[in-house]
């Protein structure tokens, strides 16, 4: 069941220059949310933005009836959202899309840039099932990996940066512990990164789920704008994704 609700911003946290996190409280009881699902946020106060913005759910706290959004400032919509303050109201359509399966006994979660957002709640969901995860976060520089410590209670944290400013130097797929030793890989981040991780997993025969971030209008499967090319034709990322089995994206990943 999808909902449309006014949430109250109870916490706003600036995470370096490019990111901020908003913790939003539901006025009643927060419905159950799967890791990897997203919200469509209404952007008020600017004539330049009409459409909602799809944002991953970064964290969920059922006891507090709150959810947290980790937002990277990339354009007009997110720039406007960055001006929101604690106490402000934010209208959400949620929870949207299909999340991660939370399968596997030894999973690897690979995130890059803003794509690390859904992995925190995912790591929590694995932990709740008694499964420790390995979390590999990547970015061009350490400033572009806005959340690190929050992951530590949920598994082993690995970092890659292209400039070597934190963790191992290089791409996530070049990390010394990026291997086929895991039984399940979940990835979200820049398209080239997800394609590289997905291709690797498919070639090595490791189960892999990829969370896509296509531009969207409606978020509920009505407008058909956000489609991705899958091996079964065009599919709406908002409705049939955002999480897809990598085996369905072979064409998208460039595997013949």
């Amino acid at each position: 069941m999808k909902h449309i609700t006014d949430f109250t911003i109870v916490r706003r946290e600036q995470l370096g220059q490019h990111y901020f996190a908003l913790t939003l409280r539901h006025p009643g009881t927060l419905p159950s949310i799967a890791a990897g699902q997203f919200v469509e946020v209404e952007v008020m106060g600017t004539r330049e933005v009409m459409l909602r913005r799809p944002i991953s759910i970064h964290d969920v706290n059922p006891a507090e009836n709150t959810l947290t959004l980790l937002i990277q400032v990339v354009g007009k919509g997110t720039r406007q959202l960055a001006t929101l303050q604690e106490g402000d109201t934010l209208n959400l359509i949620y929870p949207l899309g299909h999340g991660f399966s939370v399968e596997g006994r030894n999973p690897l979660l690979v995130g890059g840039g803003a794509g690390i957002a859904p992995l925190l709640y995912l790591a929590k969901c694995y932990k709740a099932k008694g499964v420790e995860t390995t979390i590999l976060l990547g970015g061009r520089t350490k400033e572009l990996i806005p959340v690190r410590e929050a992951f530590e209670p949920y598994g082993k944290l690995l970092i890659s940066t292209e400039d070597g400013s934190l963790g191992e130097k290089g791409m996530v797929t070049q990390h010394s512990l990026f291997s086929a030793a895991y039984d399940h890989i979940c990835t979200c981040g820049p398209t080239p990164m997800m394609k590289a991780v997905g291709r690797y997993a498919v070639e090595k025969g490791v189960d892999c789920e990829v969370s896509l971030e296509n531009m969207m209008a409606c978020g509920i499967g009505a407008c058909l704008c956000c489609v991705t090319d899958t091996d079964e034709g065009h599919k709406c990322v908002c409705k049939e994704g955002p999480v897809f089995d990598a085996l369905k994206l072979k064409k998208w990943m460039g595997i013949e």
């Binding site: 004539r47 330049e48 459409l51 209008a217 704008c225 090319d229």
Partner: peptide, 23 residues
């Protein structure tokens, strides 16, 4: 019909362009 290739939507001032192509 599969419609046109992605990207097939762009937001514009007070509106949007679409090129879904009858999927």
């Amino acid at each position: 019909r599969q419609g046109n290739a992605y990207p097939r939507m762009a937001e514009t001032p007070s509106g949007m362009l679409n090129a879904v192509g009858l999927q």
